[in-house]
Simulated scan of single mutants.
Amino acid sequence: MDDLNAKQRQACRAARRLITGEQRTQASKAIAKRALNWLDKHPATSIGLFLSLNEEIDTTPLLHELWARGRTVYLPVVRKQNAPLVWMPYQQGDALSKDSLGIAAPAYNPKYAQEGMHLDVVFTPLVAWDQSGQRIGMGGGFYDRTFAAKIAGQAPLLIGLAYACQEVTRIQARPWDIPMDGIITEQALNII
């Protein structure tokens, strides 16, 4: 099972790297538009988002629109290995620092920290996905640990943001894998 997931992760990362800058820009705008249209129909006020790494969908267009619409945006913070993510509010103009993995994130402050289970919607990064809602991430297990108590179809809704080329036929889920409630690509919105 792990070999299949590793091969799918490798193939999907390679496919993402082939996407040009302009293609990434257009896909990111299309995904932001789909996500915002979906959010217009859902009463989510606290929204988890991620800041994109190299080859991922660029979440900047979505982030700026969420701020413009007055939504409260939270970003994940890795405080330590093998622990759930902590979510910190992120407002326009806030400074970012590096979390324990060296990823840009708001500085941790226990006064404002949120547990992921208290958010309404969390837009998740991923490397590969399938039509049943299974995802393959980068391999750290942070999202699975954070949402281990999640009940399918209930808040927080986990919605993956990815390119259509990251879809695979089937991901062999492990017992600890937490499925997504939906996926948004530049081509479609698929709520599971």
Rank of each mutant, 00 (worst) to 15 (best):
P175T: 10
A149Q: 15
D130T: 07
P175F: 08
A30K: 06
P125K: 02
K33Q: 15
I191N: 10
Q81M: 14
T59P: 06
M117H: 05
R135T: 01
A105M: 09
R174W: 09
C165G: 02
N5P: 08
L101Y: 15
A27G: 07
A152W: 06
L53A: 13
L51V: 07
L49F: 01
L96S: 06
Q92V: 09
W176Y: 13
A32Q: 04
Q81G: 11
L49P: 01
W129T: 05
R79T: 01
G133R: 02
Q154M: 08
W67C: 00
A173Q: 11
G137P: 03
I57E: 03
L85V: 06
K29Q: 15
P43C: 07
A27M: 03
A32E: 05
L53W: 00
E186Q: 00
A128L: 03
I178Y: 10
A164P: 10
D99H: 06
D3Q: 14
K111F: 04
G137V: 05
G139P: 07
T185Q: 04
P175C: 07
I184D: 04
A95R: 12
I47G: 12
Q81F: 14
Y108H: 08
V121W: 00
A35N: 00
D58W: 07
I57P: 04
A83K: 06
R69V: 10
Q91E: 14
D181Y: 05
T59M: 00
D94M: 09
V168Y: 09
L39V: 00
T60D: 15
R9A: 11
E115T: 13
A188M: 12
I151G: 02
I184H: 11
G70V: 09
A15L: 14
L62H: 08
R34I: 12
E22K: 11
Y74R: 02
E56L: 06
I47W: 02
M180D: 01
